[in-house]
Design a protein around this nucleic acid. Structure first.
Lengths: 195, 195
DNA sequence: GCTCGCAATTGATCACTGTTCAATAAAAAT
DNA sequence: ATTTTTATTGAACAGTGATCAATTGCGAGC
């Protein structure tokens, strides 16, 4: 199929990641197939396993890429709208998930085998996104409440996440909720005001 | 394997559901196997498909049972503690999920094929749980804010859900959050006070 | 009591999945 | 030109959900 010198190791890894990410975006986690990825880039399954070691590591790599795109999306939203930065964050959370539902859900659909710790690379990626929010929450809080920022930010992420998830998975539709974003933003405002 | 008269149709359905529910609790959605359920109750896969029609319908039936147990759990919590009913609700949400992580996550791990509407039976079950919360939120709100109860309740469910999910899937651990329940309850208090 | 028809039950079969690893092909080193 | 090292392969394995012709067993009618 593929010549040995067609791609270096790094190029091959990028090739698989590109196609895997594309396929995750198209089909979603439940229908994702490592075999199909291999087929589409013209390599065998064996090569894919040589490069990534296991299915879990491939998914982890794909989700890490999604996290990077998500963080960039949030930063772009923050940069383009200097006015209400908290609103920009909530809006960025929603718009990325809505624009990339399969990729976004794959982050939470995939779970490592029990006992397996999250590799450092991925953990760092998550921390980065959390830190963006912590910094903004701290800046928006009155000076005497700054020490609460980290804990509050984590809690607000969970709050927005719950709304975003219900918006994408159909729960809010079933409940008759028509403005998930508005509701999430209002909850965030409630708690920022209380702090 | 199994004699025809061993079980009536209704008994057989209950038998499959019992074993399926048990297995979902033990192994979780990702490792759940319809074949294994059939094997354990001494029937063939074919029979299981004759009774439930498809994998999706079996999972739906299992998840519906989980929803019933969950609603009962919430009602029990409300009944045993008359003091702070909102806290009892949040506590009931968390303790059911923590006590039955695989069953609880299966509700959200399973997604119907795109375009397939949720069968009425399951939709009604969800609505029941939502209605419990709406009633309690309405009762805890000042009389002049009652009309906001339904929308606020939906939003608070999403809020608590986000915290509960992050507690179970390890996100909060990664973030360094040690008291997800306390954080969820605080967010609910913030928004109840603001309403 | 026997037979026959109908409905419940079966499990081989299909097309797929992730995973492994001896065999092979190709490049590098000698 | 030959050997060594390395990348690549794909058949094989154990599993999955799904299907459906063939079988089995029950009960009604004779």
């Amino acid at each position: 199929m593929a010549r040995r010198s067609d791609h270096s190791r790094a190029e091959l890894e990028a090739l698989i990641l590109d196609e895997g990410h594309r396929q995750m975006a198209e089909t979603g986690f439940a229908r994702f197939s490592a075999r199909e990825v291999a087929k589409r880039i013209g390599y065998s399954i064996g090569t894919l396993y040589n490069v990534f070691g296991s299915y879990d590591r491939l998914i982890l790599a794909i989700n890490t890429r999604t996290f990077q795109l998500w963080a960039a999306h949030l930063r772009a939203r923050l940069a383009e709208d200097g006015e209400d930065r908290i609103k920009a964050l909530v809006e960025g959370y929603f718009s990325f998930a809505r624009g990339n539902p399969n990729l976004w859900m794959a982050i939470y659909d995939h779970r490592l085998p029990p006992g397996t710790p999250m590799p450092e690379e991925f953990a760092a990626q998550r921390a980065e996104l959390t830190d963006i929010v912590i910094a903004e929450v701290a800046a928006a809080l009155p000076a005497d409440a700054r020490e609460k920022a980290a804990g509050l930010a984590r809690s607000l992420i969970a709050t927005v996440h719950g709304h975003c998830l219900f918006a994408l998975n159909g729960t809010f539709l079933l409940m008759g909720e028509s403005d998930p974003f508005g509701a999430a933003l209002q909850r965030v405002r409630d708690s920022m005001a209380a702090a």
